[in-house]
Design a protein around this nucleic acid. Structure first.
Length: 708
DNA sequence: GGCTCCCGCCACTCG
DNA sequence: CGAGTGGCGGGAGCC
């Protein structure tokens, strides 16, 4: 009976495959073909073959003749497999899922192709592949290879205008692996900001665009944590070094350190602070092991090493490190050497060293955008907030925990980098915000901005100005009058409640109405919000409102904040969802120097402007990524930059992302205030311990409400 | 025989 | 209670 089910399933899947149902993403596939060849340093048989096959002929995939029962499906004799099979047979949904999975396998996973074909295409047995080919070896199923395949699906440096969404489900099916494996990869990628989590099952791809910045932050943090000292003395087999680390971190985290993301970041830190840029697994493991409880130290060590192998495999796939072997006495100690970017510390010239082999000049050029940046004074609140996102820990001390900043990346605290709360330096640069002017951004040109601030790590593009051009002060009522402000303050309680609710609930489950995305009139048309016109300015010399354009419009993580009336015709030339942010709340955030420079108009703001860190604490909570699809669809947005990825369009987002953006002028002001003027805004968002305890389990979208 | 690391169980959290 | 996450470690492939 079991065998029957499988056969049927497989048969169906083959039919679908042959029907060419996999053409949904031709573009990606082409990319993959290109990328696979480019990326794979050591041509792996399976991958090159895969690429080749894809290019040449789909039919070739059906060549494989012989069937491998034990591989074509889970071993039916194991308890797990049995259970799966039974469940599958009983549940149409599960069956469909499995079917889908199978369906995509032939496309992305060479060995799977072989297996499936063997299963189904007995009549097409023209060739016979040797065992090694038919039966995927352990290596062929390695995380590293899987990661390469994963990476091949996306560009290293996605266009600023393209928003590449990653559906874990889809990727898993495409690659023919379990979601669990995708998590392993994504977690590491996320630790380096190559991807950011948007919602459950949904990530957004950044590629290497933010890598340099991330590495820079990692190095800095690593030094702050004293890792360089540890690395310097690691020759001593590092037990002492490890101890040092522990002492340094004191009550540092427990569980989050076990997080693959955190571990990955720390692992990378070790490389970056190391003079030789080499790290042995042993050293890394020991350094990363916190508690030195003797009773469990060994098992901890082993587990740590396992995880490090996982991480190292992914990093290797990223061409960031490579494994070497050091013959030491009677054992061969694996040692990893950093081969990734090493010059990311420089400012505007910061380019990826490794970019040479992965990116084009054009791509590298984009990296420059993330060059200059400033530090934001971290606050305990912020730290806590970030800690919040870290995998839950049964016993969390609530502080001194390394924080996975990547989690907050896009949707959250802009650019907050927080790995650990060093007791000795609570605010010691563990968090930082990169801000740079972005004269060359295509969007600025369209908006004719006065100044632009770009927050690299949490892609946010801000445009601001000190004056308002004529023609935009068309006298519409300002949503942010003083009176309104007062009212707003009165409403704070409500807002607070709302924020609390938000903080304690799944951020991704949101009501789209919260996301104030309106269609922007390409011309002079007034902006409407809930039927109410709201653009304007009563003061001809000051823009009273700014438009915040969340990157929900497929702008690849770029959020805009611009003077409402600062574009030609008073409105942006592009149609994007946005909402207004009262000028008074922003004006103060713009340094005089910047404002002045900006006053010149046009794009004459090449000089990096140092912005008040505190004022630029833009909580992702509010600027968080909204559900792109929802926005795009619900608001009919089809802007220039709205290149929703095929995947994105194909797959509906699980749920609307809850945007804690104001939906009313009142809220906007209140909200903005907290974001732009409250240094500890994030901290305020910190959920109470109860609400904060989240773990490896279902993650909330890292969006939090600004006020609380 | 030790190094690697795949595999998937199962704990957690949240809706 | 189901779904999404992801920590964790058994144990088998590989060198």
């Amino acid at each position: 009976m079991e065998m029957k089910c499988l056969s049927l399933k497989d048969l169906i899947s083959v039919r679908k495959i042959k029907a060419g149902s996999d053409d949904t993403d031709t573009m990606n596939e082409q990319k993959e073909n290109i990328c696979v060849e480019r990326r794979i340093m050591t041509p792996l048989k399976s991958d090159s073959l895969m690429a080749h096959r894809r290019v040449c002929s789909p039919d070739i995939t059906h060549i494989t003749p012989i069937k491998h029962p034990e591989k074509s499906h889970p071993d039916p004799w194991t308890p797990t497999a049995n259970l799966k099979m039974l469940i599958s047979a009983a549940s149409p949904d599960i069956r469909d899922r499995e079917l889908k999975k199978t369906l995509f396998r032939p496309i992305e996973n060479e060995e799977k192709v072989t297996e499936e074909d063997e299963d189904l295409d007995d009549s097409c047995q023209f060739e016979v592949l040797d065992d090694s080919e038919r039966r995927p070896s352990r290596k062929q199923k390695s995380l590293g290879l899987l990661c390469q395949k994963f990476l091949a699906l996306y560009p290293d440096y996605p266009e600023a205008s393209e928003s590449i969404n990653i559906s874990l489900d889809e990727v898993a099916t495409r690659l023919g692996v379990e979601r669990r494996r995708i998590y392993d990869i994504v977690n590491v990628l996320e630790s380096l900001m190559l991807v950011s989590r948007m919602a459950k099952n949904l990530y957004v791809w950044h590629g290497r665009s933010l890598l340099s910045k991330t590495l820079e932050e990692l190095e800095r943090t690593g030094r702050e944590q004293g890792y360089h000292l540890l690395m310097d003395q690691r020759d001593g087999s590092s037990p002492h070094a490890a101890q040092h680390t522990q002492n340094t971190h004191v009550a540092s985290s427990r569980r989050k350190d076990k997080s693959l993301r955190i571990m990955s970041q720390k692992f990378v830190m070790l490389f970056l602070v190391s003079k030789t840029r080499t790290v042995t697994l042993d050293t890394a493991a020991k350094i990363l092991i916190e508690e030195g409880q003797d009773d469990s130290s060994h098992s901890k060590y082993k587990t740590k090493v396992r995880r490090l192998y996982d991480i190292a495999n992914v990093l290797t796939s990223l061409n960031l490190i490579k494994k070497l072997h050091v013959r030491e006495e009677n054992s061969r100690k694996p040692i990893f050497k950093w081969i990734g970017p090493s010059d990311f510390r420089s400012d505007s010239e910061s380019l990826e060293v490794s970019g040479a082999h992965t990116g084009t000049a054009e791509r590298r050029e984009k990296m420059v955008r993330h060059s200059s940046f400033i530090q934001v004074v971290p606050t305990p609140h912020v730290n806590r907030r970030l800690i919040n996102s870290a995998p839950s820990t049964p016993h969390r001390d609530g502080k001194d925990e390394p924080v996975d900043f990547s989690r907050k990346s896009v949707s959250s605290v802009a650019c907050r980098l927080q790995f650990e709360d060093s007791p000795r330096a609570p605010s010691a640069g563990s968090t930082s915000v990169a801000v740079s002017l972005q004269p060359e951004t295509p969007y600025t040109a369209q908006f004719t901005p006065q100044a632009v601030a770009y927050l690299p790590q949490t892609p946010v593009l801000m445009l601001y100005s000190s004056h308002v051009p004529e023609g935009i002060t068309q006298g519409q009522r300002s949503p942010v009058t003083d009176q309104k402000k007062r009212e707003r303050e009165e409403d704070e309680n409500q807002a607070s409640k709302r924020s609390k609710r938000t903080a304690s609930t799944e951020s991704e489950t949101a009501e789209s109405e919260c996301l104030d995305t309106r269609e922007v009139s390409p011309g002079n048309g007034p902006v409407k919000e809930d039927g109410v016109e709201k653009r304007s300015n009563t003061d001809p010399h000051h823009s009273s409102q700014y438009l915040y354009v969340p990157n929900t419009a497929g702008l690849n993580g770029l959020n805009f904040l611009m003077p409402a009336g600062h574009t030609h015709g008073g409105m942006p030339a592009v149609a994007v969802p946005y909402f207004l942010v009262p000028s008074p709340l922003i004006a103060g955030t713009v340094p005089a120097s910047c404002a002045e420079g900006a006053a010149g108009g046009g794009l004459s703001f090449s000089v990096p402007t140092v912005l008040s860190p505190a004022r630029f604490v833009m909580a992702g909570g509010a600027f968080g990524m909204a559900d792109k699809f929802n926005n795009a669809e619900h608001h009919g947005y089809r802007g220039p930059g709205s290149t929703l990825s095929p995947q994105g369009l194909r797959k509906e987002s699980p749920r609307p992302v809850q945007m804690q953006t104001p939906s009313t002028p009142k809220e906007a002001a209140l909200w903005s205030k907290s974001f732009f003027e409250t240094p500890g805004a994030f901290g305020l968002l910190a959920s109470p311990p109860a609400a904060r305890k989240r773990g490896s389990a279902q993650r909330k979208l890292d969006i939090e409400h600004p006020s609380n």
